[in-house]
Simulated assay, not measured.
Amino acid sequence: MLSEDTKTIVKSTVPVLEEHGVDITTVFYRRMFEAHPELLNIFNHANQAQGRQQTALAKAVYAAAVHIDNLEEILPAVVQIAHKHVSLGIKPEHYPIVGEYLLKAMKEVLGDAATDEIIEAWGEAYGVIADAFISVEKDMYEQAASQENGWNYFKDFVVARKVKESDVITSFYLRPADGSNVPPYTAGQYISVRLSMPDNEYLVIRQYSLSQASKPDEFRISVKRESDNDPNGVVSNYLHKHVNEGDTIEVSPPAGIFVLDVEKTTPIAFISGGVGITPMMSMFETVATSTPERPTVFLHGARNRLQHAFDDDIKAYSEKMENAKYKTVYSDEENGFITREMLEQYVDTSGDAYVCGPTVFMEIMIRELRNIGMPEERIHYEFFGPAMDLNTN
């Protein structure tokens, strides 16, 4: 427990963190990587280069300061981030390293304003937050390893099949190299893929949604090929161009909290844009095969027909369901967007909606769902990208 004096001191730094947070986290990452380059095997280099992770971490530190007298407020974020950590293989011994260089960065950027009293208070606060992460992640690791066919960290998988789904999306069917089966997972979860790439000194890790309902013998990920000039596309391009059937890659156990509530039978709507269709396929297939009577809507936005993946699959599942509606729009065509009017026409606001896609798309869909009267607690989403946390990609 933190003392009231410590909470008061940490809370007093909120204005400073609001103004100088990104400067602090930028120095933090630079100094930490200089001293511990091995951590570059964990971090997403593209997010670092673009400043996305620095900004995300600055927001996380700011949020911790704001809620320091009631850290339970940020517990949902802790759980979400812990899932990412477990998927990436974060270990307890990483936390002291992060704490050391975060405090050093505060001192370097703030100078005399970062008094010994402030640094000591933040050190104590960081220790409490780190202990919370370590405890939550310990339970997750134990659960992942103890379940049938489970494991911790990374395991070799073989690409059993490679299937082109559209002009930009390709699916990879992955099976354990040791011939075992895979653990069951909840529709909507993701795995991490770890690769050693030519001309790259460090390992690279990316997280991809599992794009089919849980199967006993395989995982499927469906990867969008980004532009060659997009720094975020280094790994996706490598997978598309160089990873083929029979190749081996490393895979982490399933993780994530953006998942389908399989207990419900009330109306449900899946609303996706672009490659955001991938977790929706896992969810939709699960509903179609386990509760086909459930009233279901699938709305999807793509750039054009050539970039639209899984169209035939969704139609096939829909035909076997008792009450399913499927609508696609293409932004290259006139009026090719999911509108409020379309949501009003298709979405039953007494049920649940799951939203996934590019950030702007999600922001618009979430806002419009609220506008048509869907309660906040029944709108489910997760913004993918750098975790707003103290450690990782």
Rank of each mutant, 00 (worst) to 15 (best):
K11F: 11
A144F: 03
V159N: 12
E293Q: 05
R378A: 11
Y330Q: 11
G188N: 06
L102G: 02
A114V: 09
P198S: 06
L75K: 08
P76F: 11
L17C: 02
N335G: 03
D311H: 15
G233Q: 09
V360N: 09
T349H: 08
V109Q: 12
T291W: 10
Y126C: 09
V163T: 13
Y326L: 02
Y126D: 01
M1R: 08
G336R: 05
S331N: 13
K241G: 01
Y330C: 02
L71C: 06
P216Y: 13
L195A: 04
P184G: 11
G233T: 06
A63S: 15
R370N: 01
A105Q: 01
Q345N: 04
I205T: 14
E341W: 10
A56W: 09
Q54S: 14
K241L: 09
M365C: 00
I277A: 04
H242R: 14
K241C: 07
D139A: 14
L306H: 12
F28S: 08
R194V: 02
T359N: 12
Q54P: 12
M321T: 09
I372E: 03
D116L: 15
L40E: 15
S196M: 08
D116T: 05
F43W: 05
D199H: 09
K164N: 07
D313E: 15
S192D: 06
